[in-house]
Write a protein that binds this DNA or RNA. Structure first.
Lengths: 110, 110
DNA sequence: ATATTGTATAAGCGGCTACTTATTCGTCAA
DNA sequence: TTGACGAATAAGTAGCCGCTTATACAATAT
């Protein structure tokens, strides 16, 4: 049991604020690059590059229709993120948060 | 409502596999730098630098006792990650995943 | 005081990231 | 066809990231 924590690319894709913003915008419904663009202070190629990273990470998909390319959110990978974080749920529930400190003192005073 | 998505540094801190690994190891109980070190293929300073980033992001805390420094996991920020991802839960539950496609067709054929 | 141990910081460096502008590719309209 | 438009890719660049080694700092032990 090494690192069960989803593909590295996944968290890397989420590291950039701009890409999390794209996810947020796409959660309101599919949009094209040019529809997304005004929300960002960057060029179209820059945004397309972000979208490529999100695509490679499996976070979004693009459906081409006509000469437009509609991007939409893919839930699956986001679920992986939720599940990864949820593994540590016991660290924030039922005051078990103090467990760390308890263990410290236990092993500190033998 | 701009970007309610937790501090940028949080996701950046999680982007590096080594740091997620630290989180995983600390989930088994507090450990010092030198206890963690053998699990990694890097120098002690490198690991200390990762720990600093995790500390700055509020993901871990260090309790000094004697000349040892015990690192422990902080649940709060991990909860933020879970909550962030959970915001998109509707994209992976109850086949609502196909919602994107539906909306596309709706706006595509007016 | 001095030495030893545990850990952090400093300085430096190659490689990757996130942008830019310029160009190409694909699809439709005339 | 040709032209226009939407979007991707190419090429280049400044700055950040993650590592290294060397050094400094902090706390105990002698």
């Amino acid at each position: 049991m090494d690192a069960p924590a989803a593909t590295p690319d996944l968290f890397h894709a989420l590291a950039a604020p701009a890409r999390r913003r794209v996810i947020d915008l796409l959660a309101q419904g599919p949009q094209t690059v040019n529809e997304l663009l005004p929300q960002f202070d960057m060029s179209q190629p820059a945004l397309s590059q972000h979208l490529k990273i999100l695509r490679d990470a499996g976070l979004v998909a693009a459906d081409q229709r006509g000469r437009h390319r509609h991007y939409r959110l893919i839930g699956h990978r986001l679920r992986e993120v939720r599940d990864w974080a949820a593994r540590y749920e016991r660290f924030w529930t039922s005051r078990l948060d103090a467990l760390g400190r308890v263990l410290e003192e236990a092993e500190g005073a033998p």
